[in-house]
Design a protein around this nucleic acid. Structure first.
Lengths: 253, 253
DNA sequence: CACCCTGTTTGATCTGTGTCAACGTCCCTG
DNA sequence: CAGGGACGTTGACACAGATCAAACAGGGTG
């Protein structure tokens, strides 16, 4: 197991590596951390298969019956919820090694939409199988519980962002979070392509797309990043961190 | 088991009733729904004791070691998170029958503060015991997973509220949610006391206390509610629902 | 009963972000 | 390579909610 992956920088989900495995490289994905080889073999038995999705395809929709959770083997997704009156809110962006579908356990119906933002591949994990196995394999149970809890903690971070931060702080936080997650997967922390539109970023951050665009421009003018369409270079991480944590005047409350 | 409790109106947690039980009325609280009597007896064995808290006391603080989750036997709590630069965000208000502490599972450290907003009493459920038992009792495992998932779905609702709604929509949503949760516990849906200050409501809703106060005043002027300090009467539920779901002009995006 | 402290209401003004609109850029397709 | 459509940028202006400030209400406590 390759060592020294930054894993506790922020409430990310979990790093991904390369390696073969019977059905899919789940061994390297979210669930199995800390399991022994024999336990991993049991887990393999529970993978219900793979599925490929084209850009724009839905993995599931709000209202669909919940049957499985999904580990992203490769690709990039967004999840969103919508109200009866047609407003929608992006609740997250998920990348390789992260898990989708936890929203459906409670009601046995999915409560949000999950859409691929690029051609992607997922591993399907039938939930009843997962529950059965996790009651036998303590480390798997523990890992699954931690995963759900981390999702709750992540959501709290988003509440903070939406409730207390200004536009530029939100975008800086967003960029730094993406950067860390790419880095944890072995990609560059400084240079990456955004898979989502300005409108989707705005929806996630509680902003209009024009505001997102203006904030990008200002970050570029200030020399913190360079932006060309969806291509981002972070030139001054410290600068972004300053924006994130230093509200212009009064903090608190 | 008393029938006809409204349980699927909104992603609430779970209703509470009166009845005796060995250590605490957990039988009627969050976890046990759907368990047989013998399974309930097993669950009783796992309750680690009770604890009383005075108004203002912390049940746990961010950074505390995570050891147990807590079922509220009676009382009212808020949870909040804070950033390094001192801003804090209320992430939820919890009442009798709801559960606290799920945020700590992921890192084995609590990531938010939980404070009693009135004198309260909780049942302590040591997490290792809960995990052990839930691997033996399938219905308990299932119930616990549903509980965590519902918390995630609730958080998505808050994101929608913070990301897409205007001040009055947020407050109307908040009041209607409280109303339903009081109703589900056998209290009046129309008349209740707020346990939290305007500032705490504002923090939860991403608004300043003055804005909360003005929205209350406007609801009263319009005849939707009457407000006297923390005492609220809902006079026109439909009116509030209209505010919640009918943005003044353009919706969507 | 007077005092104080915390919480609430209300008014006047300011400002960050939304809204509307025009234009630019890239990519895909024929 | 021309045309079209989706996406992004930028500007001018409007407005919801923040900020600042003052006054009020209630509820403990000496």
């Amino acid at each position: 197991m390759p060592a020294s992956l930054p894993s506790n920088v922020i409430p990310l989900h979990v790093p991904t590596l390369q390696s073969a495995c019977s059905q899919c490289n789940l061994r390297e994905l979210c669930l199995p951390l800390g399991l022994s080889d024999s336990e991993l073999d049991m887990l393999d038995a529970v993978i219900g298969g793979r599925r490929k999705l084209k850009r724009g395809q839905y993995l599931y929709r709000s209202g669909d019956a919940f049957e499985a959770i999904y580990a992203i083997k490769a690709g990039f997704f967004k999840t969103d919820v919508l109200t009866e009156d047609g407003r929608d809110q992006v609740t997250g962006f998920q990348m390789t090694g992260e898990v989708l579908g936890l929203d459906g356990i409670g009601t046995e119906l999915h409560t949000c939409n999950a859409v691929a933002l690029e051609d992607s591949e997922i591993c399907l994990i039938p939930f009843t199988d997962l529950e059965r196995l996790s009651s036998e394999v303590h480390t798997l149970q523990r890992h699954f519980h931690k995963m759900m809890s981390r999702e709750i903690v992540r959501d709290h971070g988003v509440m903070m962002l939406l409730g207390k931060m200004r536009a530029e702080e939100r975008l800086a936080t967003f960029l730094l979070n993406l950067s860390q997650r790419f880095m944890a997967r072995g990609y560059s922390a400084a240079e990456f392509h955004l898979r989502m539109t300005r409108e989707e970023i705005g929806s996630y951050l509680g902003l209009k797309l024009e505001t997102v665009s203006r904030a990008f421009s200002r970050f570029q003018d200030e020399g913190f990043i360079s932006v060309h369409q969806k291509h981002i270079c972070i030139l001054d991480i410290q600068g972004l961190k300053m924006i994130m944590t230093h509200p212009p005047s009064s903090s608190g409350t």
